[in-house]
């Protein structure tokens, strides 16, 4: 379990990083916290020719609340967000989801943007981003663009990001008054990737439920408020996710959890409106 050979570039500026990505094309990988990339390198599942370490680029180290959203730069580690004193108030869903991301030791290194870029279908941060309707800011040497979270995730570990682009930052919309938020996750053990993770937002007129761990990417859907129509809508949602069996859970179990936990988190979010 030793990584294959690659060059290593410790980028000091964003331009250096973007130039390197442009030059190396699909054979380059951004190295952020390394908590997903290094296991894959150690298993030799990936063979980049160059790693571009972006963690020393000062411009990417910022977390800023502006325009009703929290913008998190590419070099911001998960722990920095987790320890933000006001996160429970400003974005309770993100605060709740963060605690489920791996372990303290991986959150100390892993970045928020790295988790989004990695796009594991069971990961909590992509789920939170989709649930909240956040955005991904992409940047290449030539161009900048902003992609909505709901269209960014294309499949298991597949995204809209092009090879020469990197994620510069992601933005999580902040808590809106009158909206309640709730998050729940079922995994085999604490810290495991989710079998099913549910994130819900409920305001006076509507509910929105996002599910991770079932489809090949996080999926959000508008659902009725708790009431007679909710169960049928949840059932339809559960089936639409095309759940699969794996060694940890059956497809049916995943659908069952979408139906049952889905209802619970929506109800919990409704209670938390305030």
């Amino acid at each position: 379990m030793k990584p294959p050979p690659f060059d290593y570039l410790r980028a000091d500026t964003l331009d250096e990083a973007l130039d390197a990505l442009a030059a190396a094309g699909p054979d380059a990988r951004v190295l952020a916290g390394g908590q997903s990339l290094l296991p894959m390198l150690n298993m030799r599942l990936v063979r980049p020719t160059i790693l571009v370490d972006v963690m020393r680029i000062g411009a990417l180290r910022t977390v800023e609340a502006r325009g009703g959203a929290l913008e998190v730069g590419a070099a911001v580690r998960q722990v920095e967000l987790e320890r933000r004193a006001d996160l429970d108030q400003t974005q309770p869903l993100l605060a709740a989801a963060l605690r489920w991301v791996g372990h303290a030791q991986t959150r100390n290194r892993g970045t928020v943007c790295g988790s989004i870029a990695h796009a594991d279908p069971s990961a909590e941060l992509p789920l939170a981003l989709v649930a909240l309707g956040g955005e991904i800011r992409l940047r290449s040497r030539r161009k900048r663009r902003v992609v909505a979270a709901e269209t960014f995730f294309a499949g298991s570990m597949a995204t809209e990001r092009r090879d020469d682009e990197m994620i510069e930052s992601v933005t999580f919309p902040l808590r809106k008054p009158g909206t309640g938020y709730a998050f729940r996750e079922i995994g085999r053990r604490h810290g495991d990737f989710a079998i099913v993770a549910c994130a819900a937002l409920v305001d006076a007129t509507s509910a929105r439920l996002a599910i991770g761990g079932v489809a090949d990417r996080p999926v959000a859907r508008a659902l009725p408020l708790p009431g007679p129509d909710l169960d049928e809508a949840l059932d339809g949602f559960a089936w639409s996710l095309e759940a699969r069996d794996d060694i940890h859970a059956t497809a049916r179990y995943r659908r069952d959890l979408v139906r049952r936990l889905g209802r619970q988190v929506i109800e919990e979010a409704a209670r938390c409106r305030g």
Binding site: D53, T106, R109
Partner: peptide
């Protein structure tokens, strides 16, 4: 060497982290 067992945990700039998921050059 894939980040799960924790046996390799060291403190990097004060924060416990997996040495097996860290390159020396980092």
């Amino acid at each position: 060497e894939h980040g799960v067992c924790g046996a390799c945990t060291v403190q990097i700039d004060g924060a416990p982290a997996r040495a097996c998921l860290t390159l020396a050059v980092q």
